[in-house]
Amino acid sequence: MMATAHRTYRSALHPLHAILLAGTIPLFLGATLSDYAYSSTYHILWSMFASWLIAGGLVFAGLALLCAIIGLFRADRRRGLFLAYFFLLLAVWVVGFFNALVHAKDAWGMMPTGFILSIIVTVLACAATWIGLSSLSAGGRE
């Protein structure tokens, strides 16, 4: 009698993908906090901080989106979950891009729309990171 071992391989996110995905949260959260600081103090420097943090968040989210596109073609069993993750990450990038356009205005003109968009993109980034790091990395059931 021969014993056979069944191996289960977990399809976790690539470490670079996970770093890029996790990097979006502090950048977009920093932009939200900078917008809050500007709305409290009206120092223009806070609006410039928010603009740069949003630009960095867009770079990280764009590269994570590129990794998600590659992972979308590699996903086999959990394609539905990966599609939801991909579209959520796409929403992060699109809303973040519009947020960057709003922040390109002068400091007085970007409020309150820029602050509201910063809150929305931060919540979306947290949701995308939650799905990406917990559900997709866990391996799921066989």
Rank of each mutant, 00 (worst) to 15 (best):
R10C: 04
V123E: 00
T24D: 09
S51N: 04
T122I: 00
L20D: 00
I54Y: 03
R78D: 11
H6L: 10
T129N: 08
S51Q: 09
T8V: 13
M111W: 08
L83I: 13
M48Y: 15
T122W: 01
R74N: 13
A55K: 09
T32D: 02
T24V: 03
F87Y: 15
A100C: 01
L133P: 09
A127I: 06
I119W: 01
P112H: 01
H6E: 13
Y9L: 13
M111S: 07
V95W: 04
A138P: 05
G96E: 00
V123F: 08
A55P: 03
W46A: 05
L20S: 01
V102A: 08
F49T: 11
T32C: 02
L45G: 14
V121G: 03
I54Q: 09
F86D: 05
L90F: 14
Y42W: 12
L89Y: 11
G23Y: 04
H6P: 11
G62N: 04
F97D: 03
Y9E: 15
I119Y: 05
E142I: 09
S118T: 00
F49W: 05
S40W: 05
V102K: 06
A107M: 02
G114E: 01
L33E: 07
L13K: 15
T41R: 06
M2E: 15
T32M: 13
A68N: 03
Y85S: 08
S118H: 00
L88Y: 14
R7I: 15
A91K: 01
A75P: 10
W46C: 00
A75W: 07
R7A: 11
G96I: 00
W130M: 06
S11D: 14
N99Q: 04
L81K: 08
L81H: 06
K105Y: 05
L58P: 05
A31Q: 07
L81T: 10
G139R: 07
L66I: 14
G56N: 00
D35S: 15
T32H: 04
I19C: 06
A5G: 07
T41S: 11
L27Y: 11
S137K: 10
I116M: 10
R7L: 15
T113S: 06
G71K: 02
R10V: 12
R79C: 13
V123N: 03
I19A: 10
